[in-house]
């Protein structure tokens, strides 16, 4: 492979550089949105499994079992096509004409978010169970109210135990965001595919995609590890 030709191809001087950067930002944006939505789903899921009544717990179990047994691609199809199916019929019911649908970003955020939420549920649940019961008892003993205890003791402690698992879920979200390309949303995967098709240089483009994702997973992985180290401050192992 001729390196200078390659750099010209993906560079900013008449190359695809700008599009790739924009696509990279889109991948990040949709991944962060999906991860955030997944965190919300996961919080509700964990809460339901830990303290819900029988019906609520059953619903949460159903949610995590179904999601973990079904391909993510199907969930994306469900939101992409099913979303428009529902919205269009709703629209017609209210007398509107024509076709309504969710855009690719919304589909990605909701579908990947709900999928990752199932994994977040387990991560957060395990994180809560790892908090020593004595610490919660101590909080109760000093007279903390429910909300105060949640905010000051439980959430920080659960996050500390759940952080490694959350890091894994984030990596998964980042990689799954490629599936959103089927909706036409121009994130890295889609942009790479477009570039490969229009230049007839698929190998260079897919390798570039590989490097871009490797960059994203490596950097974000390092950030998660830094946060983890920070969250472990005060919990010494041995000296130091």
């Amino acid at each position: 492979m001729d390196l200078s030709a390659y750099f010209h191809l993906i560079g900013f001087n008449g190359g695809w550089g700008l599009q790739l950067v924009r696509a990279g930002l889109m991948t990040l944006a949709v991944s962060i949105a999906a991860f955030g939505f997944g965190l919300v789903c996961g919080t509700f899921g964990a809460w339901a499994k830990l303290s819900g009544g029988r019906a609520v717990r059953g619903a949460a179990d159903f949610y995590t079992t179904v999601i973990r047994g079904i391909p993510d691609l199907l969930v994306i199809y469900l939101f992409y096509f099913g979303g428009s199916q529902v919205l269009t019929s709703l629209g017609h019911a209210f007398g509107a004409e024509g076709f309504f649908g969710l855009n690719g970003f919304m589909v990605g955020m909701l579908a990947v978010g709900i999928v990752s939420g199932a994994y977040q549920t387990e991560v957060l649940r395990a994180g809560y169970l790892a908090v020593p019961k004595g610490e919660i008892e101590a909080a109760r003993a000093v007279g903390m109210g429910r909300m105060l205890m949640l905010r000051r003791i439980i959430v920080p402690r659960v996050l500390r135990f759940a952080l490694p698992g959350m890091g894994n879920v984030w990596q998964q979200v980042l990689k799954e965001s490629t599936l959103i390309s089927v909706t036409g949303l121009v994130e890295i995967m889609r942009q790479i595919h477009i570039g490969a098709g229009s230049t007839r240089r698929p190998f260079e483009f897919y390798i570039t995609g590989l490097l871009l994702y490797l960059l994203l997973t490596t950097v974000s992985g390092a950030l998660f590890r830094l946060t983890e180290t920070w969250s472990l401050r005060g919990e010494r192992r041995g000296a130091g």
Partner: peptide
Amino acid sequence: RGTPLLLQIFLIYYGLGQF
């Protein structure tokens, strides 16, 4: 493990035939 499976499939399916 650091890259998406879909991209790996595309690299093999579309990428290799370039040569």
